[in-house]
């Protein structure tokens, strides 16, 4: 797994993918920081993070699109299949590499609250809780996108599919505020919504249930990815 992790991390920064992700992430973060904090002269970091949570929908497909599809396109899947490497190690290594790139981008964006703390009052717990929730939400989106793209052969199809699924997740979360929906259905959607679960983090409510939900969500998505890949290999077989 470590070998796959290191190789993937290198590949992110030896190709434009990692740089593109970080550049677009920081550009959008800068724009949203300006709109939410500098322009209205507000030190409310949660408003910034709340807007940033929609950025995952656009950006995680960039991180995930070549993870599996790239192996098939470059015919390197033959190398991985003929090596003594388990599917679980492969998927986990790739997932952790994508999460690391995301972590680097989020760490760099911490410059904004630090900058803000120099000239305004910032509530550290609120910031830390928000960042934790933001990271967990990002990890969940990466796991979801990795799962939906695990058997796709073309990188652009993988990106399009991941974006489509992310959009669907967002639209579903919008339905939780619809009065026309049956309450039970709304509650069900809210329970599984990656957006609804993030809201308590913004007000420094570190609920173990929400943290556990994100962790379980990631593990489940990885497990499904591993199963799908194994099934695909068995079908090829």
């Amino acid at each position: 797994m470590r070998a796959v992790y290191h190789k993937e991390l290198r590949s992110y920064f030896y190709t434009p993918t990692g740089w593109l992700f970080i550049t677009v992430f920081l550009s959008l973060a800068g724009l949203l920081f300006y709109l939410n904090n500098i322009l209205p002269r507000s030190s409310d970091f949660s408003a910034f993070l709340s807007m940033m949570s929609y950025v995952w929908m656009l950006l995680t497909p960039i991180l995930v699109m070549r993870l599996m599809a790239g192996e098939r396109r470059g015919m390197t899947d033959k190398l991985l299949q003929s090596a003594p490497l388990s599917v679980a190690s492969l998927v986990t290594g790739k997932y952790l590499a994508a999460c690391t790139v995301m972590l680097i981008a989020v760490t760099l964006s911490l410059a904004y609250p630090l900058l803000m703390s120099a000239c305004a009052r910032v509530y550290p717990m609120e910031v830390l809780s928000g960042i934790l929730g933001f990271l967990l939400q990002g990890c969940a989106f990466i796991a979801l996108d990795l799962m939906v793209t695990s058997t796709v052969r073309n990188t652009f199809s993988a990106a399009a599919l991941a974006f489509g699924v992310n959009l669907f997740v967002w639209l579903m979360s919008l339905m939780t505020s619809s009065a026309a929906m049956p309450a039970a259905l709304t509650r069900g959607i809210a329970f599984f919504s990656l957006y609804e679960r993030f809201i308590p983090f913004l007000s420094a409510q570190l609920s173990p249930a929400n943290i556990l939900f994100y962790l379980m969500f990631c593990i489940s998505m990885l497990a499904v990815s591993i199963t799908m890949l194994k099934l695909e290999r068995a079908r090829e077989r």
Partner: peptide, 23 residues
Amino acid sequence: SEVPPVYPELTVREYLQFCCRIK
């Protein structure tokens, strides 16, 4: 395999190092 399974973004040594590790 028929098409060499290589990663164009890695150097030869990095690639072979990766292969050694997965093997």
